[in-house]
Simulated scan of single mutants.
Amino acid sequence: MRRLYILVVLVLFLGGYALAAQRMEAVRAECKTILLALAPVDPRAPLMGDYMALRYVVNNDIRKALAAQKNAQRNAQENAAKATPKSAQKDGQKDGQKNEQKAEPSEKVTTAREQKRNAEGFAVLRITNAPVPQAATFVRLDDGSPLQADEFLLGYRLRGYEVTSAAPAFYFQEGTAHQYAGAKFGVFKLAADGKTLLVGLQ
């Protein structure tokens, strides 16, 4: 029975690995190529063994857009609060206090601040072909509006104050680091779901 269990687990593991590899090859062969500009990293250690730490200009653009969006929402809330009669504000505060009293002390509640600092979404990028062919630049945060012919979605994650959108490192064969030291762009294959596959540096 134990051998059968181990065999089943092994088959499932190998099957999942083969499926993931097949999907990766499909993305590499069928999806369009985009280039994302690299941002400076810690100059003390850009190369570590057989990989290079990567950052992207688009991550900075996304972080700035999120900060602007947050400020706009805060200003809108403040303006709405000023326009609301004080009696309504007091009633709202009382309702909020009642709801807090009803909540169990042991209940794990994710605060709005935590949600905002740990968010996921999509950014809209456009292929501008400048300064090199297939180069893409940030346009806006995705709001559900239709995309133009040269636009596409790029998935991102916000963790604290750090935005990630693509591979954080590029792995290369030992002894070939000099080939990538002057790279300006990450070369990616873009899937339909906004995920990217890093295939090289340029």
Rank of each mutant, 00 (worst) to 15 (best):
112 A>N: 10
200 G>R: 06
18 A>L: 13
32 K>Y: 10
71 N>H: 08
146 P>M: 08
48 M>C: 07
117 R>D: 14
66 L>R: 07
183 A>Y: 11
160 G>R: 04
183 A>R: 07
76 A>V: 02
22 Q>K: 04
162 E>K: 12
119 A>D: 14
186 G>M: 06
15 G>C: 09
64 K>V: 13
92 G>M: 06
46 P>L: 00
134 Q>N: 15
59 N>F: 13
169 A>V: 12
138 F>Q: 13
187 V>N: 01
127 I>F: 05
14 L>R: 01
79 N>Q: 15
140 R>I: 05
143 D>F: 09
142 D>F: 15
105 P>A: 04
112 A>Y: 01
121 G>I: 10
43 P>H: 03
197 L>R: 05
53 A>D: 01
50 D>Q: 12
138 F>S: 13
89 Q>R: 02
156 Y>A: 06
177 A>W: 02
94 K>Q: 10
21 A>W: 14
39 A>W: 03
62 I>T: 10
31 C>R: 09
85 P>T: 00
15 G>R: 11
201 L>C: 12
113 R>A: 08
50 D>K: 05
128 T>W: 03
187 V>D: 00
32 K>V: 05
100 E>R: 15
37 A>M: 08
130 A>L: 11
128 T>H: 02
38 L>C: 03
20 A>K: 04
114 E>P: 03
84 T>R: 02
77 Q>F: 07
154 L>Q: 07
2 R>L: 15
77 Q>A: 15
11 V>F: 13
47 L>F: 00
149 A>V: 15
159 R>P: 06
1 M>L: 10
113 R>P: 03
41 V>K: 04
182 G>S: 11
